[in-house]
Simulated assay, not measured.
Amino acid sequence: MKRNIVIATLTAAALATGGTVAAFAAGDDEATATQRQTNTSAEAATDRDDADDSADDRDDDATEGRRALSDSRVTAAEAIAAALKHTPGTAVSADLDDDGAAAWEVTVVKGDGTEYDVRIAPDSGKVLGAQRDTDDDNDSDDRAELAAVKGAQTDAREAALAAAAKGTVTEVGIDDDNGAVVWTADTVKDGKRSEWKVAPDSGKVTQDRDED
């Protein structure tokens, strides 16, 4: 009788111990699942934050672009004309710079090959200054592009005028398009930014699908 009582006691203790271990094991599984869910939620939150940051950056760029446009009463074509009057040569680009002090920056190449960056006030068209670009490499590609636009029927000012039919031009310049030199122009219309190609020979404007 005593022997049966001892066996029963040991069996109950073993069952109790096993139940406790099982409970701890179940608790560990739940903790692991909870931790995994927490980590996943944290990663998702990080991804959302990164996406929000990217959207904020785009909004900031758009806001700066609109601010520069709102401050500018001088068109790209007018800025190019003013720059060439001050610094004769061949205009190869014009950009509405909005890095804190909005101004048109027109790059002009003189007959001797030297480049000048001419800054034009966007509200009055007044020349703010001209600085020689000493960082330019003036490599063979640059010379080839310059030669192509020098002999073209459409210059930078005319390219800007052609692109203006698509919206407000914020930038115009020369570019290589699969081995052919073209004018490219950025425009803004109804808050949407678009990019265009302008043929140097005919002045025909086509949308730059590669960039869009």
Results as ranks from 00 to 15, higher is better:
residue 88 P to L: 05
residue 89 G to I: 05
residue 90 T to R: 13
residue 91 A to S: 11
residue 92 V to Y: 11
residue 92 V to P: 02
residue 93 S to T: 07
residue 93 S to E: 08
residue 94 A to Y: 01
residue 94 A to L: 04
residue 95 D to V: 13
residue 97 D to I: 06
residue 97 D to K: 12
residue 99 D to M: 11
residue 100 G to V: 03
residue 101 A to T: 15
residue 102 A to P: 01
residue 102 A to F: 02
residue 102 A to L: 02
residue 105 E to A: 03
residue 106 V to K: 00
residue 106 V to E: 00
residue 106 V to I: 08
residue 107 T to M: 11
residue 107 T to L: 12
residue 107 T to A: 09
residue 109 V to Y: 02
residue 110 K to Y: 03
residue 110 K to I: 04
residue 110 K to L: 06
residue 111 G to P: 02
residue 112 D to W: 06
residue 112 D to Q: 05
residue 113 G to N: 08
residue 113 G to C: 12
residue 113 G to I: 12
residue 114 T to W: 03
residue 114 T to M: 04
residue 115 E to T: 13
residue 116 Y to G: 04
residue 116 Y to M: 09
residue 117 D to K: 14
residue 118 V to E: 00
residue 119 R to G: 09
residue 120 I to P: 00
residue 122 P to K: 02
residue 125 G to I: 07
residue 125 G to T: 04
residue 126 K to M: 04
residue 126 K to R: 14
residue 127 V to H: 00
residue 128 L to T: 08
residue 128 L to V: 04
residue 128 L to C: 05
residue 128 L to M: 13
residue 129 G to L: 13
residue 130 A to S: 15
residue 130 A to K: 10
residue 130 A to R: 06
residue 130 A to I: 05
residue 133 D to S: 11
residue 134 T to H: 12
residue 135 D to F: 07
residue 136 D to L: 06
residue 137 D to V: 13
residue 139 D to R: 08
residue 141 D to F: 10
residue 142 D to H: 03
residue 144 A to Y: 09
residue 144 A to W: 05
residue 145 E to T: 09
residue 145 E to G: 13
residue 147 A to D: 15
residue 149 V to E: 01
residue 149 V to L: 09
residue 149 V to Q: 05
residue 150 K to R: 15
residue 151 G to F: 12
residue 151 G to K: 15
residue 151 G to E: 11
residue 152 A to I: 05
residue 152 A to Q: 08
residue 153 Q to N: 14
residue 153 Q to K: 14
residue 154 T to I: 15
residue 154 T to W: 03
residue 156 A to K: 00
residue 156 A to E: 00
residue 157 R to W: 01
residue 158 E to W: 03
residue 158 E to N: 09
residue 159 A to S: 12
residue 160 A to H: 01
residue 160 A to V: 13
residue 160 A to G: 12
residue 160 A to D: 01
residue 161 L to W: 01
residue 165 A to W: 06
residue 165 A to S: 15
residue 166 K to A: 14
residue 168 T to L: 05
residue 168 T to C: 06
residue 169 V to G: 01
residue 169 V to C: 08
residue 170 T to H: 01
residue 173 G to S: 03
residue 173 G to C: 01
residue 174 I to Y: 06
residue 175 D to P: 02
residue 177 D to G: 03
residue 178 N to H: 09
residue 182 V to I: 07
residue 182 V to H: 03
residue 183 W to V: 00
residue 183 W to Q: 01
residue 183 W to M: 00
residue 184 T to L: 10
residue 186 D to R: 14
residue 187 T to F: 04
residue 189 K to R: 15
residue 189 K to S: 15
residue 191 G to S: 08
residue 192 K to H: 07
residue 193 R to D: 15
residue 196 W to E: 02
residue 197 K to I: 07
residue 199 A to K: 04
residue 199 A to W: 01
residue 200 P to Q: 10
residue 200 P to L: 10
residue 201 D to N: 09
residue 201 D to Q: 15
residue 202 S to D: 12
residue 202 S to C: 08
residue 203 G to E: 05
residue 203 G to H: 04
residue 204 K to G: 10
residue 204 K to R: 13
residue 205 V to Y: 09
residue 205 V to N: 10
